[in-house]
Design a protein around this nucleic acid. Structure first.
Length: 590
RNA sequence: GGUCCCGUGGUGUAGCGGUUUAACAUGCUGCCCUGUCAAGGCAGAGAUCGCGGGUUCGAAUCCCGUCGGGACCGCCA
């Protein structure tokens, strides 16, 4: 080893020891006759000071520059009186440089590594290896490691077996778009990278593993969001002989202990509250509500249906939120909220400001509704002086989508919640099917193997829309953190579901024949869940984008700005894969 | 596929039709400096304003296109 200690492990106890350290020049303070260098490695920072007594080392020290890689040997000593630095972990000691060796020089980095400053995202990604040297990124990677490590330990102790599943898998038309991998040996055929190990973990249950987990990389070729990357990591789990309650408990205990062990964060409520999907939809307009603040949706359809205003009287649903204390919003601010909800398909935003006297002082619709209606509206929405009421009238989906987004926007402004708070909840009792208007059929709302709730099985034939699935989502601070279900393990029931969604037998056999066949060999009742690791670590690190907790993320256009992927391939490679590239102009012509 | 925001010395920003020779901070280079820790002082180098086109007597500034980054809708559990 080129070092005897790390920069982070030296303390006042080491005073008097002769040590050798190696790392990067974090910062240099050159006083001419005396030079200080903060030496950085993975584990910490320590001040190295040159002593003119060691002339050669002193000379080398003054020639150092930021990010040079050096090796320093010398005596650890306590700093002189008044010279210690309380902001530094090793602030009461320093290393006297007796021998300094430059192991490597560095160009001036394209951005500051030794301070937390804004840097353009593209630049950070291009020089990711430098970005990762910055303290907050190192902290995030470290937290990620600890999270995964904790999960592995915890689940191993609970009898779970970690099993790896293949990355070269089979394409499935359901769900997200697959990343395809062309086969060299089989002309015209493709593997697909797994969207998740869903089928394989069920097959592991057939295999008798009983308790499986995997820190699994998943791939989905869909457009990016702050919490979505083309490849991401899930804690994938599956258990046999369990009921829904067992899965929920397993995760709740795991996450609770993880948070307690690794962070200072607190849960808003324990045990985590549970809501039906219907309830959260009605109260928050979304199935992933941020529960750190109130501002719930109020249904005022009945109150305004008689109004002269056509947007109210003709709407399927009218709901609103009370933006408490936002009565001072200017017309311009309100207009920007209107533009905001239009993104979600809303025609506009009806609004009313409650004045100091408790009456509506400004409103976009006051002249179209009578006093009684306005009064009822205020009462229903618990409006106080200084509040701003915001209403959306449209079909129920648009109302929910737009108000859910508006609620979060308002909540961020007025919520003033503790950033150390985790508001986790379970959302359960999802409908098993959604009616697909365009195709005129029922679609599974989760996936094909989700079991219906036992008490709802009777409705399968008569009223599929009423059937709830044994499906559950774990939601935290407005993010979907985990989702799973109890699976169907009965061939007859599985066939009934296939029939119901109109999946042709031959098609089912072609796509899922391996599953159906496996299920005929003594499949145990089983269920599972998958936790989004990137999102989890993002929340624990209090970041707003999962890029911040991924070492080498993709850009919004799904490119890697550091290595320049995707890239073209040699003609020879393409030929081997039996691929020819079509002219982009010809495929664009309608 | 769509909407919106951003692009100015290495970095982060200001300037948003004409006293701009493009400003400020930081970084960088050199010199001075023995107790600093975002060290300090002095001096200096460094951007034709992402790219292309247009409007104009005049464009970093206005318009169109394009490229790149980001946020979001669609998409995606």
């Amino acid at each position: 080893m080129l070092k005897t200690h790390t920069c982070g492990e030296l303390s006042h106890d080491c005073v008097g020891q002769v040590v050798t350290l190696a790392g990067w020049v974090h910062r240099r303070r050159d006083h001419g006759g005396l030079t200080f260098v903060d030496l950085r490695d993975r584990w910490g920072l320590i001040q190295v000071v040159s002593d003119p007594e060691y002339a050669e080392a002193h000379e080398t020290m003054s020639g150092l520059r930021a990010e040079y890689v050096i090796q320093v040997s010398g005596n650890v000593r306590g700093r002189p009186d008044g010279a210690s630095n309380p902001d530094m972990v090793s602030g009461d000691i320093e290393l006297v440089a007796q021998h300094v060796k430059i192991l490597n020089v560095s160009k001036t980095p394209p951005f500051d590594i030794n301070k937390v400053s804004k840097v353009e995202e593209g630049l950070r990604q291009k020089y990711r290896y430098l970005d990762l040297r910055r303290s907050n990124m190192l902290a995030n990677l470290s937290l990620r490691h600890k999270t995964i490590s904790f999960i592995r330990d915890h689940l191993s102790q609970s009898g779970f077996l970690e099993v790896e599943t293949p990355m070269l898998f089979k394409t499935t038309p359901e769900g997200a778009r697959d990343y395809l991998v062309p086969s060299r040996l089989h002309r015209g055929k493709f593997y697909a990278l797994p969207q998740s190990p869903q089928q394989l973990k069920q097959l592991l249950m057939v295999a008798g593993i009983e308790r499986y987990f995997q820190i699994a990389r998943c791939f989905r070729d869909e457009d990016q969001r702050g919490d979505r990357q083309p490849e991401f990591t899930q804690l994938d789990m599956e258990m046999s002989f369990v009921e829904q309650e067992d899965v929920l408990q397993t995760i709740e205990i795991l996450i609770t202990e993880l948070v307690a062990n690794l962070t200072e964060m607190k849960f808003q409520q324990t045990p985590w509250p549970r809501f039906s999907s219907e309830e959260v939809l009605n109260r928050f307009g979304t199935d992933k509500p941020d529960l750190r603040f109130g501002v719930e949706l109020q249904d005022v359809t009945e109150l305004v249906v008689e109004s002269e205003l056509k947007i109210f009287s003709s709407a399927e649903t009218v709901k609103g939120i009370n933006a408490e204390g936002c009565g001072n919003y200017s017309r311009k601010q309100i207009d920007s909220l209107t533009d905001f909800v239009k993104q979600y398909g809303a025609g506009g935003l009806a609004w009313a400001v409650v004045g100091d006297d408790g009456n509506v002082s400004r409103s976009s619709f006051r002249k179209y509704v009578d006093e009684n209606t306005m009064h009822a509206l205020k009462k229903k929405m618990q409006a106080k002086p200084g509040d701003l009421l915001l209403l959306v009238a449209s079909d129920v989906d648009v109302v929910h989508d737009s108000l859910a987004a508006l609620r979060v926007k308002i909540g961020e402004k007025i919520g003033v919640y503790d950033t150390n708070l985790l508001a986790c909840c379970w959302v359960i009792d999802f409908p098993l099917f959604n009616w697909n208007e365009r195709e005129n059929r029922w679609d599974p709302s989760h996936h094909l193997f989700t079991a219906p709730l036992t008490e709802d099985i009777g409705h399968l034939d008569t009223d599929p829309g009423r059937v709830r699935g044994s499906q559950y989502d774990m939601v935290c601070n407005g993010y979907e953190m985990a989702g799973g279900s109890i699976r169907i393990h009965d061939s007859a029931l599985q066939q009934q579901i296939f029939d119901l969604i109109g999946l042709d037998k031959n098609v089912a056999l072609e796509r899922f024949g391996h599953m159906l066949e496996a299920f005929e060999y003594g499949t145990p009742p089983h269920g599972g869940i998958a936790v989004g690791i990137d999102r989890l670590v993002m929340l624990l690190a209090q970041e707003k984008n999962i890029r911040e907790v991924i070492a080498f993320p993709k850009s919004q256009q799904a490119t890697d700005l550091m290595v320049g992927a995707p890239s073209t391939a040699d003609v020879d490679q393409l030929n081997e894969l039996h691929i020819s590239i079509t002219d982009s102009t010809s495929s664009k012509i309608e």
